[in-house]
Design a protein around this nucleic acid. Structure first.
Length: 401
DNA sequence: AAACGCCGCAACCGCCGAGGT
DNA sequence: AACCTCGGCGGTTGCGGCGTT
C-alpha cells in the first residue's frame, strides 16, 4: 500500500513552533500500485545524512540506535516530512534502521511513536464524539487502562490520544459525578457526605444510625464518627447539633432552611413520611449531579426511605464486599445499577483513595469547569447516564478481549 | 500589559514479552 | 542458555496555550 499526501491546505499550528503553521499530513490517497513518479517526486527522500557508528555485535541484535547525539523533543516539519516520505516509499516497520535510512537523527522508537501517534494517515483528529466517549468509558470499565485495546475498537484514534482524553476529560468528569474512574463505581469518600448526614439527621424518620454504623467496615471512619457525633447531639442538644452542623459546613441553604424549620418545631416530627412515588430510582440517582446529591435532594423533592437506601444507591460495588451480617438485606441488592466489578478481591477503600490524581477538589469544585461549554455540560450529563449499561452475563470476556 | 497558574497533549521513559543471535 | 534488541504498552513529564488576576 502506498500513500501520497496531496493536501497541505489545512492549517495546523505546529507544537513548539508557534510561528510555523502547517500540517504534516492531512490527506493520503491509497494506491493499489506504486504511486506515479510525479507524486513521489513531491517528497524527495534524503538518504543517510549522517553515518552510523560501526556496531560490533557480540550477542543478540545490534542496538537500534546510539542514544548519544540523537535528537529529542518536538519534531520539526522537516523531520516529519522525511519520516512521511520514507514510510510512503518503504512502509512502516523496521524502525531500527529507519532513522538512518530516512536521514533522521532520531531513535527508531521516537520515529515509531511519531508515526503511530501523529503522522499515520488514518488518524482521526478533532473532538471525540458522544459515541466514542461512550465506547471509551464502557471499554475502560471492562479492560481498565488497556489503551491499546480500547484504541483498537475506536478506528482512527490512538492509544495515546485516548489515554490523554481519558485523563484530561473523562476522568475528571467521572470524579465530579462521584464515580470512581478506576472501579467505575460511585465514590462515597469524595462525595460531600457531611451534607448527606446533615440532611438525614435533620429528619429523624429518615435516619437509621444503627444501620449506618453497621456499614463501618466499608465506610470512611471519619464519616461514621461524624454521624455518631451528630446523632448524639441531635438527641441531647438540638441547638448544639445545629451549631455542629454549621461548624462542619454541612448545611446547604436548603438544609439550613429545613433545619431552621425543624428547630422552630423543636424537632417535632413534622415531615411527612415519604411516599413511594417520591423515591428516585437508583438510575435516577445516578443521573443526579453530585452537587445536588440524591440525599440532599431529598429535602427538596425526593425523600429516600432511609439513609441506607441512599447509600445503597450510591455504593453498588460495596455490596458484594459486605461482610457484616447485620446489613446484607439492606445493602444487598435493590440497586438497579449493575456493578462492574462483582468481585471485590482487588477492591478496597484504600485503592479508591489512592487513585492517582484524584482529589476531592475537582469533585465539588465549581471552578474547574467554569468555562465549560454547553457541550461539555451535555457530555457531563450524558456521562452520568453511561453507567446504566449492563454487561451481559453471557459475555465471554476472553472472546471479547 | 504583565505575571501567574492551570490545562491539554505530544513526547519521553521505563518496563515487558517475544524473538533473534 | 544467556544476552540482546524490537515492538508495544502504560505512566509520566514538560512545555505552549490560555484564562485569570
Amino acid at each position: 500500500m502506498y500513500f501520497a499526501a496531496f493536501s497541505f491546505s489545512l492549517i495546523y499550528k505546529y507544537r513548539g513552533h508557534p510561528s510555523i503553521n502547517y500540517h504534516p499530513l492531512i490527506h493520503f490517497l491509497p494506491f493499489q500500485s506504486p504511486p506515479p513518479p510525479s507524486i513521489c517526486l513531491c517528497f524527495p527522500v534524503t538518504y543517510c545524512l549522517f553515518q552510523d557508528k560501526e556496531t560490533t555485535i557480540t550477542m543478540g541484535r545490534a542496538p537500534c540506535c546510539d542514544k548519544n547525539g540523537l535528537k529529542k523533543g518536538p519534531w520539526t516539519p522537516e523531520e516529519d516530512h522525511k519520516l512521511i516520505t520514507y514510510i510512503q516509499l518503504h512502509g512502516p516497520g523496521n524502525w531500527r534502521t529507519l532513522p538512518k535510512n530516512a536521514g533522521l537523527q532520531r531513535c527508531g522508537k521516537s520515529c515509531r511513536l511519531r508515526w503511530t501517534n501523529y503522522l499515520r494517515p488514518d488518524i482521526k483528529r478533532g473532538r471525540f464524539s458522544f459515541e466514542e466517549e461512550e465506547t471509551i468509558i464502557q471499554l475502560h470499565s471492562i479492560m481498565g487502562n488497556k489503551w491499546s485495546a480500547i484504541a483498537a475498537r475506536l478506528p482512527g484514534r490512538t492509544d495515546n490520544e485516548i489515554k490523554n482524553y481519558w485523563n484530561t476529560h473523562i476522568r475528571k468528569r467521572l470524579l465530579r459525578n462521584g464515580i470512581d474512574p478506576v472501579t467505575h463505581a460511585p465514590r462515597l469518600d469524595l462525595l460531600d457526605l457531611s451534607s448527606i448526614l446533615g440532611s438525614a439527621l435533620c429528619n429523624p424518620s429518615l435516619f437509621n444510625l444503627s444501620s449506618l454504623l453497621g456499614t463501618q467496615t466499608i465506610l470512611n471512619p471519619e464519616v461514621l464518627r461524624l454521624a455518631t457525633t451528630l446523632s448524639s447531639l441531635r438527641q441531647e442538644n438540638p441547638e448544639m447539633f445545629l451549631q455542629h452542623l454549621q461548624d462542619n459546613q454541612v448545611l446547604s441553604s436548603q438544609v439550613q432552611n429545613q433545619v431552621s424549620l425543624s428547630q422552630a418545631n423543636q424537632f417535632q416530627n413534622t415531615i411527612q413520611e415519604p411516599t413511594s412515588s417520591q423515591f428516585l430510582s437508583p438510575t435516577q440517582l445516578m443521573q443526579t449531579d453530585v452537587g445536588g446529591l440524591s440525599c440532599q435532594n431529598s429535602l427538596q423533592n425526593v425523600v429516600p426511605s432511609s439513609l441506607d437506601d441512599c447509600l445503597v444507591s450510591q455504593v453498588p460495588n460495596f455490596v458484594s464486599c459486605n461482610t457484616n451480617p447485620s446489613i446484607p438485606d439492606k445493602l444487598a441488592g435493590n440497586s438497579g445499577f449493575q456493578p462492574i466489578n462483582n468481585s471485590c478481591q482487588n477492591y478496597s477503600i484504600e485503592s479508591v483513595l489512592s487513585t492517582p490524581l484524584s482529589s476531592p477538589a475537582p469533585l465539588n469544585s465549581s471552578s474547574t469547569f467554569v468555562n465549560s461549554s454547553s457541550t461539555e455540560d451535555e457530555r457531563e450529563s450524558y456521562c452520568s447516564t453511561l453507567f446504566k449499561f449492563e454487561i451481559p452475563e453471557s459475555l465471554d470476556m476472553d472472546d471479547f478481549l
